[in-house]
Design a binder for these strands. Structure first.
Lengths: 341, 341
DNA sequence: TTACTTTGTTTAAACGATTAAACACATACT
DNA sequence: AGTATGTGTTTAATCGTTTAAACAAAGTAA
């Protein structure tokens, strides 16, 4: 079945393609004879005409397409984000092309170029560690984009992220107020700013309290393939301290996942032996015997805001927009709520 | 920074755009003077030329883009699939555009049309319930596509799915061999063929055994918003039978998720009080106190195969391909392995 | 010398849409 | 009558590639 073009309609009705285009795009409405317009619309429907967006894009130099680059589309956090972004884009008649960058700045750069070849109008990107050059490249080439979830504080650009400092601060305060005396942190050894901020929030909350921060409480594991083992080792060490920690803050759901598994395997009771707070909800945590207290990210708002901002950028708005959304602390059963231990 | 076109290179080198095109596409290699070719390549690099795929697509009537339509990109099963498909497509220089159809055949149809406007070369689709018309539409219009995960047995078309019958049969046999006498099934009330097959596998495995199938053991919950409550009700009923079930087979990870939560909340011991098998691994299940026995789908193979088949279709191969992959039963701790109860 | 090949390059149409500008009439105004 | 204004439609260029066909110059063969 051959594809129907403007020309086919024009021929059938006996007018020029220009007129057909005007009618179907509702332009020059005042000038066009009503009967002709009607006839054109009818014929378009009859022939099941659908505009060729490729041709349209070429002429308009705009594809109504946005590129989404995340670390890993199969990570629930990013796939939820993808879903929300797709929904929001669809509402504005934009389409989403995506790629997974594997937390790898080089792969991310390759993807950016692939999508640029396809003339995407702009990007939403969750940059990888050391992805500064990617961001600078986009900036230099004046390509509209918004960073999401992560950003580089030294680069002036648009982003929508979480107030990670405050989130971690809030969580740590909650532990302190619940009576914790020795609070462990399990985080990644990375220079990703959002994780640095989480660490800073944790440290400052302790610093402002009566507790003296012990450097041994902060355990940083490498981004690596054997992450499971590294997390287990980290937890073993935290619990083998002369004065073992009595609570733990995990800065990511993956870390928490392996951590909890290990904690559980060792018969440690939550929150009696150990209080727990995690970043991001894990589906798992509901299944776990003690529903976890966690920091909830406003994923929906994040995705929608980023999409909205990007579309504004694409439409020539120039000011830089930087938005830190607030996490909410959802208190459940993994943190003691009263008294010292 | 303006975009560089073939013409810019042609002007700079002092040749025609045709020659530039031939050189950059490695065509007519025998005919072109080596120095000129080199000069063109150098200039292209120097100007940081990147081909405009939109223009190329228009001319070639091929976009090297595939449309992926799944029920919900934020469901881990589908996002893993998306990830694998994107990887595989990228290897072949294809790009993936996606949409989430919300298990809704109408939304799916709308998405198909949006992506067709964008001239995708073909589709990979996990069709929604009652999505037959979508499939027929694609067939009638000779648009290359492959169904994934689900298909409609009465429609002759390409698909890559799971041998759901055998998977459920295998799981049920395992329960029987482990000594289960009253095996419950928690599934959706749907006419989706893959779930029908799972039910059939369950029924036949029991039919072939010494156990007399009790219709009350099969609990079908509606696809609905309050699925959590429906699952809880279903489980309560199965356990409140005069002769309560001693094992449960869940036909989806979502059902299992809510089911297990409820089972756990009620202090039921697995596998002592109840044996459990689920379809699809849940991250959660590792966290759960008894690692679950489950049916593992070969997601990677499924995604790669579907992509490969689609690309063959796009390249004019006409035979219909239908592939049922085999699940593997991963036996862990949620099923008793010996003796009657 | 004439005719044919080979080599290297350009010309020009095409893909399917958009849109400024031109055109042809009809009507209105002085 | 002559000019301006309005109405309805077409013309033709353009977006950035690709590619068959044409072309020009040089080499080869008779």
């Amino acid at each position: 079945m051959k594809k129907v073009s403007l020309k086919d309609i024009a021929n059938k009705v006996g007018v020029s393609t220009a007129l057909v285009s005007y009618v179907l795009n509702n332009q020059k409405t005042g000038r066009i004879r009503k009967e002709v317009a009607l006839k054109i619309k009818e014929t378009a429907k009859e022939l099941n005409y659908r505009t060729n967006q490729i041709a349209r894009s070429l002429k308009l130099k705009k594809t109504f397409t946005i590129g989404l680059i995340v670390a890993d589309i199969s990570n629930p956090f990013f796939s939820s984000l993808a879903r929300i972004i797709e929904d929001e884009a669809d509402k504005k008649n934009y389409t989403v092309i995506f790629g997974s960058a594997d937390e790898n700045a080089e792969k991310s750069f390759k993807l950016i170029n692939t999508l640029l070849d396809r003339q995407v109008d702009g990007f939403i990107i969750a940059p990888a560690e050391n992805g500064e050059s990617n961001v600078i490249y986009l900036k230099e080439h004046d390509i509209p984009f918004v960073l999401i979830d992560r950003y580089f504080p030294q680069i002036e650009t648009n982003w929508v992220s979480l107030d990670n400092y405050k989130a971690a601060y809030m969580a740590t305060r909650h532990l302190i107020e619940g009576g914790s005396k020795r609070i462990g942190l399990v985080t990644y050894n990375t220079n990703l700013f959002n994780l640095q901020e989480r660490k800073r929030g944790y440290e400052n909350a302790i610093g402002e309290s009566k507790i003296a921060l012990d450097r041994n409480w902060c355990s940083e594991v490498l981004f690596a393939d054997d992450i499971k083992l590294l997390v287990e080792k980290a937890i073993d060490e935290l619990l083998a301290l002369p004065q073992p920690v009595d609570s733990l803050l995990f800065t990511s759901n993956t870390l928490a996942f392996y951590g909890l598994k290990h904690i559980h395997a060792n018969g440690i009771k939550i929150p009696d032996d150990l209080s727990i707070i995690t970043f991001d909800q894990m589906d798992a945590s509901d299944l776990f015997y003690a529903p976890l207290t966690y920091l909830k990210q406003p994923i929906e708002e994040m995705g929608q805001t980023a999409t909205k901002i990007l579309l504004e950028k694409i439409n020539e708005k120039k000011e830089i927009v930087q938005i830190n959304l607030q996490a909410s602390l959802i208190v459940r059963k993994s943190t003691a709520t009263v008294g010292p231990k």
